[in-house]
Design a protein around this nucleic acid. Structure first.
Lengths: 352, 352
DNA sequence: CATCGCGACTGTATCGTTACAGATTTGAAG
DNA sequence: CTTCAAATCTGTAACGATACAGTCGCGATG
């Protein structure tokens, strides 16, 4: 027996560590290459051999070394979630991460959170990922109509998905909440309640869903014959105190609205505070419809009509879409829009 | 010039890809090994050489290939945040992730989120990380007094930090919120308001901070001479509806408390709902102190006195502690306890 | 003048995996 | 009795980095 056959490890691998291809090769008496190809179900390996290899691999709990694979193939098995550190008060990230990991759990992918701080640095993490090949796919949010991140990722061919749409003529995977419809239905609801002077707490103008929400709001005004009260001093990215103070001023003016559409759950809190500081009462002087990513409004302010934006589901959709993109599915099949629906009130207890 | 010197790449590396040690070696005319050691500031490399290498490396934006390092050295540069998928309603994860990444941003570490689903599977992600060497350090939460994860990680020598303490005689890094003091101060506050029949919405009994919070509560009762009303039907892990219904029953009974200590912000919501369903009024019939990881209670129910648990800071502390542990600092220097403080009310606007 | 030590640098092997180009066997075709 | 193709299996090199064991030149030492 010549010991030139380096590929066939006659030395038992220095056990104690985790099993590698070499371990399996030793146990089956096969070459490392054969084992590798057998586990990949390559066509040039005998059926029985594959079976044997699979069995042994399973028995000893073989799991490919990620560093080895990554070094050789460039495949990282990483999905990168790119986030801004300037967090929304109610922490939209939480359910998002949960949703994503729910999907990734059934795959070899890991979720890496990649943050950026200043708004102007939004490109930094993207460049980092591209330059270092840190991930196989990227999830980005706070999408803008002409988003340079989308342009760059597309140009470099790195799979990604956006939370929110763009308007740059690039067909790419996305998941979005139908903010146009949200605002439209909100107006319908308020008008049905007899409200006619409506105000919108809008998203920051540079984000894509700003125009969606505005469009829905204005279409609603036209269709249901209501009037808009201007309120562009603040948006949902401002601090709650700023929103509150600006809204108090508005509510004290003669232009005071009688119906509110709030583009965010935490913004709604500030609006309520401003309204109450102006000595107005919710439900009486004013009705409100708010988007809400969680339950607290329904519990604490049941007068507010809420449409639930399920961020956890969004996370799931986003994860499925990036993976689809990585797997080469056409982008146009990886787009989804979640439809807003009014939430029922919290069920009252059944006891006497 | 002999071309045996494989280590000195005379062929310009097939550029187009990212720079590697080989690229720098080619540019400086040095060997790959020398470049590697120069960048590590090894003592056997000349000062001027180091300078040159560093300069070139910086110029071309060299960043070590993580897969290469990881394969060779086993160092992953990954911190794993182990989370349960069964999320608390208010999403504590969000600020936590933000806090952690704030610290990791200044280091070579990446944050990987590793979830587990069923409570019984809490060990699964730990075993996975240990078996596959997936991380250099681990952050775990929902700590129990005798936590098998802590035992296993300690035994295997993988650096970690817990959010919460244990009681197993193992000295390990942790960060915790002082729940004992929280409950104690809460009782003090309620008694100062003339409340004497107090109830505690407690954590689930298997978690360590259950006994902390209970201890503080009971010490407060003794020191300030108040009485406890039993309420063990539900805890902060139960659904809001369950908490509400159980609390309604209690509030309708002749045992109805006049002071509430709520161990969680979202639990507080349910308690308020239950109380109101029992036709009682906050502030009048009953006062409440609640722990709160966010601002919404202060905005929507300013009557509730809150102590803020800054999860973002917790994330920062946890990240610092794992890294310290990885760097070999003694565990006893990596323990921290954050002190609760009552939050001031939201500042009222300044305008007329 | 050999030898030693030291400073500065370098080649080789290796981590685990896979692409690629063989190698070996078997049986059928000529 | 070649020759060839198909079916299986295998060795080598490479991905990028580092541990280790050198090598080389040079001034000091005996």
């Amino acid at each position: 027996m010549d010991n030139k056959t380096k590929n066939r490890p006659l030395t038992p691998p220095p056990d104690g560590g985790r099993p590698t291809l070499k371990t399996i090769a030793f146990m089956t008496g096969l070459g490392i290459t054969t084992v590798s190809r057998a586990l990949k179900d390559a066509p040039d390996i005998g059926a029985e051999t594959k079976e044997r290899v699979r069995l042994v691999a399973k028995q000893i709990g073989y799991q490919p070394n990620r560093a080895g694979v990554r070094l050789r193939t460039g495949k990282t098995n990483v999905i990168s979630l790119v986030l801004t550190l300037e967090e929304e008060i109610m922490g939209i990230t939480s359910p998002m991460v949960v949703g994503i990991t729910e999907i990734l759990a059934g795959t070899p992918y890991h979720l890496v959170v990649t943050p950026y701080s200043a708004v102007k640095d939004a490109m930094a993490p993207i460049r980092y990922i591209l330059d270092t090949g840190a991930a196989d796919g990227v999830i980005i949010s706070r999408t803008e109509p002409h988003d340079p991140r989308v342009a760059l990722l597309t140009e470099r061919g790195l799979p990604f998905v956006t939370h929110g749409r763009t308007e740059m003529g690039i067909v790419h995977p996305y998941h979005d909440f139908d903010n146009e419809r949200f605002a439209y239905e909100a107006v319908r609801k308020l008008v049905a309640r007899g409200r006619r002077k409506l105000v919108l707490l809008e998203p920051p103008p540079h984000l894509t869903f700003y125009s969606h929400m505005r469009a829905g709001f204005e279409r609603g005004l036209r269709d249901f014959q209501a009037d808009a009260v201007g309120f562009h001093q603040t948006n949902i990215d401002h601090s709650l105190v700023e929103i509150r103070d600006a809204f108090e001023v508005l509510m004290r003016s003669e232009d005071a609205p009688d119906g509110i559409v709030s583009g965010s759950g935490s913004g709604a809190i500030a609006l309520i505070a401003g309204l109450e500081m102006a000595k107005k009462k919710l439900s009486e002087d004013c009705d409100m419809v708010s988007k809400s990513p969680s339950d607290f409004l329904r519990w604490l302010r049941p007068e507010v009509m809420t449409m639930y934006e399920d961020i956890r589901v969004a996370g799931r959709e986003l994860a499925k879409a990036v993976i689809g993109h990585i797997d080469g599915q056409p982008p146009e099949t990886l787009q989804s829009l979640s439809q807003p629906e009014f939430q029922p009130p919290i069920t009252r207890g059944l006891r006497a």
